[in-house]
Write a protein that binds this DNA or RNA. Structure first.
Lengths: 195, 195, 195, 195
DNA sequence: GCCTAAGCGAGACGGTACGTCTCGTCTTTGA
DNA sequence: TCAAAGACGAGACGTACCGTCTCGCTTAGGC
């Protein structure tokens, strides 16, 4: 690619792609979703508008792309050996992701936009949410393998019951979701599980 | 212009107000949040743009106004004499409101927009969500008064645990929330409450 | 926004109109037809692009408008009492208009553009060239009335024979058209007329 | 051009050059000067844009190139033995060239463009107009050699007086220039020449 | 029964951002 | 070494709405 580079026949410019994604991320965090325009992204990234329109149909597509694997990286629950420990850590991680992480800001913006954009909603679920659900379920899968849980338990519902509370407080009520909230939540939740 | 009225000195035109609110509601349902512009609302309502800007600072203010007491009307749980019945009916009502009601569409749009508009988020909570939380709690309040529940129970948290799941499925995962889902949810939830 | 005026219901802004026309004129003279863009006209005139698009379909329409009555003002031949004097003065005026006048620059640009724009060509003729031909003919009309010319003379053709040479040298060969050229041209032309 | 050639080390492709020139000519006639873009020429010619930019600085250079010797071919007056016959034929040929010939369309486009492009104007004159003037003068040169004309006559001016009228009517007034116009023009012009 | 002032429909205004188009440059790959 | 293919930065295009402003009409209370 050399120093500044201006395109070639076989393939797009990875430098331009990265510049756009970073510019979009920065502008979202700095000026919010409303302050995020293609015009500004292009200016900030030092890229022509056409280059953006060539590769991304809309600004939410840029965000989806910028979002990338950030969620997987931030929200893959580690194995602490017990369901309680796993869930405590994971819920804290989810809360942290949603409220303080840059990628979490992108996530919230996308979920917000998905409320008035069904196509985005579908892509968001297919691309990220389905995979994240599987990661959210990992502690339960491991607990089940360890024999900590009854095989009759509806794992998917159990997962949702925990994740929902954190999301509800962040997306709807706006209440804080500190460790002082999530740890007792897990502790009061576990005894309600069969076995 | 004709004879039908153009304002007067003492007070605004209720006809214009209603026309704006209805136009906003219709346009939101028909064309989504993106297709909702002041220009179109004015045209549809047969009202001058200035009349809108005179009374509402932004289009979300119009929606907040159009939203009005719809939530209270649709989501005030009736007293069926038992916590189980109350909750079953209420959760079904909430799910129905969120997924099929016109006012529910406005609600989802506002919650979505609130993800990238903190000022709206605050007003939404102050204006509607706090009051709705009190309504959501009514079945528990009545159950407590009846002695169905232990006084040690954290009612607010209990309410959130139920409401969160419905919201999570509607706002995030997009899964259906039918009676086949909500009734078992209530049934499996109640036994986990103390006493 | 400033207090200085922003439009009202009954009529367009004459200030905005004038600013656009002057900006277009200036830019044409300074940067040529290629350097004349709606974008730059709007910027120079301190006017919104939409204001230009609202009132003029294209940039040649602006030039046609800016052109206005400039040709009539500059090229109406005065009556000097004799055909020779009238024609000498008028041809010198035409040459001067075509080569040094700002409106003449606009005229040349429009004629140039008309070579690849039949619609413009038609409008240019209908709006300005037909009227100018009548003005060009005035010296002959007066000479005929005075009895200086034979009634059998084809006045229109005589007019064209003189005008054509000046235009040809300006538009095609680019040769200078000074008084040293036009005066002898008239002097050698007159004796060829009948009577 | 097809598959038979894609660059070699021994000079540029004549096939590509011809394809470009023909494509430019066709597009000018079909879509006018405005519809003539490098992009479209490249597409029509089956040639890479860079190949065009490598060899021609601008689209008017392509036209100049495409114009080539067309004017010389079309507008070299044959010798009919008399000035009157030569001029009648030549003026008719010029009128035909300007109004119906493809190369004439290119010529008009170039002259039009030259009105707002001084560099093109200079090149057009140096490359083609000066030579054409000499060709236009041939009938007079021959008449002079035959003794049909006085040696005191300003041949260049005489030539211009005839050519100017045809150009003026084509480029400016848009009036038709049929044989019914040009023949009488010549007939009424000749008697005004000094023996 | 006028006077007057606020509300109204209408719409022009200066702007911002949109998404499209063409331009001329640059780089890679193949013949 | 040149031609092809095509991505790139640049920037003008015409459109849609934004929020502000002015205009002249309508209309209800107060004089």
């Amino acid at each position: 690619m050399g120093a500044d580079h201006h395109g070639n026949r076989y393939g797009r410019s990875e430098a331009a792609r990265q510049a756009v994604l970073e510019a979009a991320d920065d502008l979202l965090v700095e000026h919010g979703f409303a302050g995020l325009t293609i015009e500004k992204i292009a200016a900030r990234a030092g890229v022509a508008k056409q280059t953006i329109y060539r590769w991304w149909p809309s600004k939410v597509d840029i965000l989806l792309d910028a979002f990338g694997d950030d969620m997987a990286k931030a929200l893959t629950p580690a194995d602490h050996g017990s369901l309680a420990a796993d869930l405590r850590e994971h819920l804290a991680a989810v809360a942290d992701f949603l409220t303080t992480n840059d990628a979490g800001a992108v996530y919230r913006a996308l979920v917000g936009q998905a409320q008035h954009d069904p196509a985005l909603a579908a892509r968001l679920r297919d691309t990220h949410l389905a995979a994240q659900h599987l990661r959210d379920r990992l502690p339960f899968d491991r607990a089940l393998a360890r024999g900590e849980l009854s095989p009759t338990l509806d794992l998917d519902l159990a997962v949702q019951r925990l994740m929902a509370v954190v999301h509800y407080r962040v997306l709807v009520t706006g209440e804080p979701v500190s460790r002082e909230f999530t740890d007792p939540l897990v502790d009061s939740f576990l005894p309600t599980l069969p076995l």
